[in-house]
Design a protein around this nucleic acid. Structure first.
Lengths: 156, 156
DNA sequence: GTCAGTGCAAACTTTTTGCAACTAC
DNA sequence: GTAGTTGCAAAAAGTTTGCACTGAC
């Protein structure tokens, strides 16, 4: 598993070299922190995480700057649900789709090979796909149950 | 085509009645303005549109309030690309997917029946789908051409 | 030594909120 | 008449920017 961290570090180093950016400790600390997180995170969560648990302290400005590099290096991807930008590591991660509950806002992930293939194999004229995001909106099991309960109560 | 405007007005009226909201002229003016727009728009665009061209003037706060109702009534859908929330009328509109150019940011739409069916027919456990958004990121033809040109120039 | 990168705070943008005035019911 | 809505301005939340300082090269 540390293999992944080592690999992304190498990829990032190569990216920085090719693009003539400096290899600062902040940048590597941020990459490491991101690849230590599970699932989605926003800038504020990452900032707190690095403030509290980790040895390395960086400013929000540096987080925003570095995120741009990591996106460009395709080591993370950006999502936009809720109010803030959410990010997610992308190296060695299975492509997955997102279920977003419109009642409670909870975001969960699911995999579906058929869908994955259908999308990946779609031919578009005059457009070259690099990646995609599929967001499915609806009601999660918990909120569906709550709705049923409310409806029942009204009938009493 | 005015048929659509009439129909959404009826749907909205019914929605307001059921949910015990008032039928204010502002709300109908906003609905009308939205169904007069083509493609995506953000709050600011809608605000300017109603300020300049239309007879009815509403505040931003009212726009935000009304947007929430229209989302709930499923008369519009919300997208999150770029920096601002984008909205789009959804009644009587063909489901479509979005191509987003990561170079120039241009958003275009495309239809694909196979994809549409594949997604609509996906069975998810413990989740009830109401709608979905598929965003495909990549490089548009224009930016791809520009990239090729830049690469050629470097070689000289 | 130089200049890209960093931290801080201020600025900016989008969205939300509090409150007085208004109006649909 | 009364409570839901509106408009305004202020506040909040997220992100970007300006600038002096630091450190990677």
């Amino acid at each position: 598993m540390d293999n992944v961290k080592d690999t992304v570090k190498q990829i990032f180093t190569e990216y920085l070299r090719v693009n003539k950016h400096r290899k600062t400790p902040e940048r590597y600390a941020i990459l490491d922190a991101i690849y230590s997180m599970d699932g989605h995170f926003d800038i504020d969560t990452l900032y707190s995480q690095m403030m509290n648990e980790e040895k390395f302290r960086v400013s929000r400005a540096t987080l925003y700057n570095t995120i741009i590099l990591l996106l460009d290096a395709k080591l993370i991807i950006k999502h936009l649900f809720g109010n803030t930008s959410q990010y997610e590591k992308s190296y060695n991660i299975e492509t997955h789709h997102h279920l977003i509950c419109t009642v409670c806002g909870k975001v969960s992930e699911f995999q579906n090979e058929g869908l994955k293939n259908a999308i990946a194999n779609t031919q578009m004229k005059r457009f070259q796909m690099s990646h995609y995001s599929l967001y499915i909106y609806g009601t999660c099991a918990k909120c569906a149950a709550m709705k049923r309960r409310q409806r029942k109560n009204k009938q009493l």
